[in-house]
Amino acid sequence: MLAVDVHDLRVKYGKLEAVKGITLQIPPGEVFGFIGPNGAGKSSTIRVLATLQPAYEGRAKIMDLDIKTKPHLVRERIGYVPDFFGVYEDLTAREYLHFFAAAYRLPVSRRKAVVDDVLQLTDLTHKIDSQVDSLSRGMKQRLSLARVLLHDPAVLLLDEPASGLDPRARIEMRELLKALKEMGKTILISSHILHELAQLCTRIGIIETGRMVAEGSVAEIYQRLGVLKIVHVQVAQQTPTLIASLRALAGVTQVDDQVDRLSIRIEEGQLDVEDLHDFIHAQGARIRMFQPEVMDMETAFMKLTEGQTA
C-alpha cells in the first residue's frame, strides 16, 4: 500500500493548467521533498491531497483511499500545514490545541494527554498558556505542526513549513521533522530551502510548469545532473598545445581559457576526474590547482529548471 499515490494529476484554474499530469508514488515512512519555483504547481498538488481542491483530473489516493470519493476518510489520515500559520490569535496555545482536538473528534478523556504530548514534542510546553498572538513565527509554525499531530495522522502534508523563519527556527523545524521521520510518519514537504531538503528527504521531486522534471533519491538526482561537471585547473606552463590536447580528449566537452585558470567541462560517465588529472600530468604540465566544482542542490535546481511557471 502506498501512502501517497498520484497518477496523471491535472489541475486547472480557468484556462490556466497549474498541474499537467504529475505522477507520484510515496511509500509509507518516506520523506518526499517537493522542489520547484513559485507557481510550479507544488501547492496545487498538495491542496488536492489535502482535500481542498475538488476540481482535478487524474487519480489521487492517500493510504489507498480515493480523495475524490472518500475525502472524509482521507482527512482522518492526513495532517496539513499550509504555507501560512493558520492560527487563531485570540486563543492560548492550550485552547488552540483543544479546539482542534475537538475538531478532530478526539475523545475528551484523551485530549489532555495528547495535547501535553504534542506540546512536549514541539518544545512548546512552557508556552501552553501564552496567547498565540504573542508567539514568535517559529513557535507559531511549531504550534501548527503540533496541531496536525493531534489525531496521529499517517501522512503529513507540509507546504513550505520553513518559509519566513529565521535560521534558528529553520534548524529547530528541521530537527522536529527528523523526529517525525523517526516516528515513521510519511511526509510530503515542499520547500525552497533546498539544502535542508537534501539533508532530510529520502527522495525528492523537482517540479516546473506543472510537470515533474526529475524524481529520485538525492544521490540519483546528483548523478543525473552530474552529466556535465566543471573542473577548474591552474598549471605552471600553460601552452596552446595543452589546451588543444585537452579539447581533443574523449569526454571533454568544452575548455575555457580564463585569466587565471582553465575551466574544463567533462561528461562524468565518459571521463573520470582522476583520469583527467593523470592526463594533464602526462602532458608535462605542473598542476598548481585542480578543483572539481561541487554541485549543491541549488545548482541542481537551477540546472533542472528554467524558472518558468505554469
Binding site: A50, H72, I78, Y80, F84, G86, Y88, A103, R105, R147
Partner: peptide, 14 residues
C-alpha cells in the same frame, strides 16, 4: 483573512 479556513476544512468536521 486570518488564513485559518483551510486548516479548519481539513479537520473531520462536516
Amino acid at each position: 483573512s486570518r488564513q485559518t479556513l483551510d486548516v479548519l476544512l481539513t479537520t473531520q468536521m462536516s
